[in-house]
């Protein structure tokens, strides 16, 4: 955590300074006889400066605790990749983003939702099911839930909440 804090502290410094620089570049409408205290850059510039200072404090604090020694981190990250947690995270991430960014808007909403719910449940419950019978049960239940969720969500949002589904 100390090493991560050191790195994120530096990232915050960069972000804050970047925001400050961009704020200074914002227009001041000198030609439009605008009140100078209303120019758009004031508040974001201030916030950028505050974030840079807070980030610097974080980086300094973790550096004092030895956070600047970053050697060996790469090897740790590689090891982390093989853990069960990382695998589950990646699976969840790929499925959710695939649904929200890939399927939604390209195929009809009900189809996207049905496929997503089914694949999500099946993918996560599959490894735990030992024999063929259980696997079949997992798939059947996932299909039922996918159908129910799709019908319920489509009806509720389209008919009750008057949302235009994608």
């Amino acid at each position: 955590m100390i090493k991560a804090d050191f790195v994120t502290g530096l990232i915050f410094v960069a972000l804050g300074l970047g925001a400050l620089a961009e704020s200074l570049r914002m227009p001041r409408f000198e030609t439009l006889s605008v009140n100078p205290y209303t120019v758009p850059g004031i508040v974001p510039g201030m916030l950028g400066a505050v974030i840079a200072v807070l980030g610097l404090l974080l980086a300094l604090r973790s550096a004092r605790a030895g956070g600047w020694r970053l050697g060996g981190e790469v090897a740790r990250l590689v090891a982390l990749r093989r853990s069960g947690a990382a695998r589950r995270f990646l699976l969840a991430f790929v499925l959710t983003v695939g649904y929200a960014a890939g399927l939604i808007g390209t195929v009809p909403f009900w189809l996207a939702t049905g496929v997503f719910v089914f694949v999500f449940i099946a993918a996560f419950e599959w490894p735990a099911a030992e024999d063929r019978g259980r696997r079949r049960r997992v798939l059947a239940l996932a299909a039922v839930e996918a159908a129910l969720v799709t019908i319920a969500v489509t009806l509720v949002f389209q008919e009750v909440f008057l949302v235009r589904l994608p």
């Binding site: 649904y99 960014a101 999500f120 449940i121 969720v149 949302v163």
Partner: peptide, 26 residues
Amino acid sequence: EKLMPVIFVLCTIGSFAIASRIFDVW
């Protein structure tokens, strides 16, 4: 495993519902 996909569907459609913009999902 059964609850989270449903919540995610609600998150997605809820974000979209406000202004009917795909950008909001992003």
